[in-house]
Design a protein around this nucleic acid. Structure first.
Lengths: 201, 201
DNA sequence: GGTTGTCTCTACCAAATGGTAGACGACTGT
DNA sequence: ACAGTCGTCTACCATTTGGTAGAGACAACC
């Protein structure tokens, strides 16, 4: 605990997340990252052996945080849709405020399996648990029946799509302010609730 | 029949769409595009004055096609959810088969307003008509009531999310073959139908 | 045959990029 | 006072990038 709040290394990780997430790995130069942090390019290379390693570190660091948030939410969540609601709520604000968070996930897909493997390894168990939970809830009649994995994928795709495309949402007339954010979240939850509600029979 | 179908210019547009869409504008060099087409880099620059103009052309060309498909589907579509179903079906296959199609849309967001304006101008009227249609269907009770623009955004986000993240879907255990594609489409439509179904009352 | 215009090529350039080498200062423990 | 190491810097390099200049192949039209 020698360096309390934001030592250079963390500030670099932070800036790199935003830049990689918003403009892509190849679209950002080490120098840009350095300038945005307020250090020299070589300071970045002092902390991270290469640009690739910087990306790997950003992914590892970021996914740890996100996964922790999701797991915490999942632990305290209830049955049926409220379980999903808790997780979505936990992810929604940071994700929309900072599209880079989930944008980075997309970024991985274009950088070959060796890098996305870092994330897959971390996410695998979480996905499995989620699928098991979903299967159970479907069988109990608390969620609409369907392929649990695909349904989960669709929930994921919806949330990620919303969170990573503010520009597209603006195209539909959405305004990116606090009110817009609240409304979007409310509509997203209503949308997902309807999509997952068990068929009335 | 020397160059009947794909003259150089079109082949370049085609290759550029795939490369830009999958690896990002900055992640692809002119040389790569040229090689993948089988010509020299300078041939690319002969057809398109600069890399920027190439991107603009790809966007214009691609969005024309997509928009035409959407409009055709929208014209023949029915009321309520079947109207949306028709459009989603029209977009789904080409979009999933070729993630670059919609991936390009995301790509635009990171390239400044001057480029995404090309697309916005083309999409604007279509979006307005879709919103008007949706408002009408909601009021008629054929779709679940809600903010028409936001609901539309969510449908869009879901489809785009699904279409542009095959890697993420694979993380959830989805397999990218013909059967997987069919199942995914069926589940997507069921998901959207449930999400948009009018509240039973 | 000559001219013109289209299309593709080789050769080259200036700028930017990721990365290396090594110096300078600040702080540590001895 | 001194050696060491931590963190940052300036200076530099090799490669790649987008882009320019100009020549050659080839067809069509005169």
């Amino acid at each position: 605990m020698t360096k309390p709040l934001a030592p250079t290394r963390l500030r670099i990780l932070d800036a790199a997340l935003d830049l990689f997430g918003s403009r892509g790995f190849e679209g950002v130069s080490l120098d840009e990252i350095a300038v945005s942090v307020g250090v020299a390019k070589q300071t970045v290379l002092y902390w991270f052996a290469s640009k690739d390693e910087l990306l790997r570190s950003v992914v590892a660091h970021t996914s740890e945080e996100l996964i922790a948030a999701v797991e915490a939410a999942a632990r305290n969540s209830g049955e049926g849709f409220s379980g999903i609601e808790a997780v979505v709520k936990a992810v929604f604000r940071p994700a929309v405020r900072r599209p880079a968070l989930l944008g980075l996930v997309r970024e991985l897909n274009r950088l070959g399996p060796d890098i996305s493997a870092v994330l897959t390894a971390q996410l695998g168990p979480l996905v499995d648990r989620a699928v098991a939970w979903m299967t159970n809830e479907m069988q109990a009649g608390r969620l609409r029946r369907g392929d649990p994995r695909l349904t989960l994928s669709l929930v994921y795709a919806t949330v990620v799509g919303v969170a990573t495309e503010p520009e597209a949402l603006r195209m539909f007339g959405w305004e990116a302010n606090a009110t817009g954010l609240r409304r979007l979240r409310a509509e997203l939850l209503a949308f997902l609730r309807a999509a997952l509600a068990p068929a009335a029979d």
